[in-house]
């Protein structure tokens, strides 16, 4: 399956959802920095993979799907749960990429521009490969 862009999904989104993500992203970044300075970089580093954003996105996806289905006249609770579950499955594959990101950054960190570029590329490569393999395995 080819990855596509669906601009129509933006019509279902509300500005409060975008604001909530902005505020949550800001709070999580502040907290990660605060925990690092208060309890040391070893503990702070753990929170660079804290799933706060996933909590928000899974919940919003479930609510959006229920709202969309209700407009069409059906309950939509099951579809909402399934959509949130699929989001979590995608994030599980993305977390493999996150491991690669952290490992590559650690290895390349004496050279910081290289570390950031290589780590981000490795996240993309591992995540997309994991996603593609998962789709392929589900079909067979």
């Amino acid at each position: 399956m080819i990855v596509t862009i669906s601009a129509s999904s933006l019509k279902n989104g509300r500005w409060t959802d975008y604001l909530a993500r902005f505020v949550l992203g800001g709070i999580v970044t502040v907290l990660a920095g605060w925990i690092g300075s208060k309890f040391g970089p070893e503990v702070g580093g753990l929170f660079l993979a804290f799933p706060a954003l996933l909590c928000a996105s899974a919940t919003m996806i479930e609510k959006d799907e229920i709202r969309r289905k209700r407009k069409l006249g059906s309950g939509g609770r099951r579809r909402g749960r399934e959509a949130a579950a699929l989001d979590a499955a995608g994030a599980a594959l993305g977390s493999l990429g996150l491991m690669a990101f952290a490992f590559v950054f650690y290895l390349a960190s004496p050279n910081l521009p290289l570390a950031f570029a290589a780590a981000f590329l490795s996240w993309m490569l591992v995540s997309i490969t994991a996603w593609w393999s998962w789709r392929h395995l589900r079909k067979t």
Partner: peptide, 18 residues
């Protein structure tokens, strides 16, 4: 905006905070 949903879910574990 990305579809399918499982691909968009990859961005749930994007290293944005990191």
């Amino acid at each position: 905006i990305l579809r399918p949903k499982s691909f968009a879910g990859l961005l749930g574990a994007v290293p944005s905070v990191a």
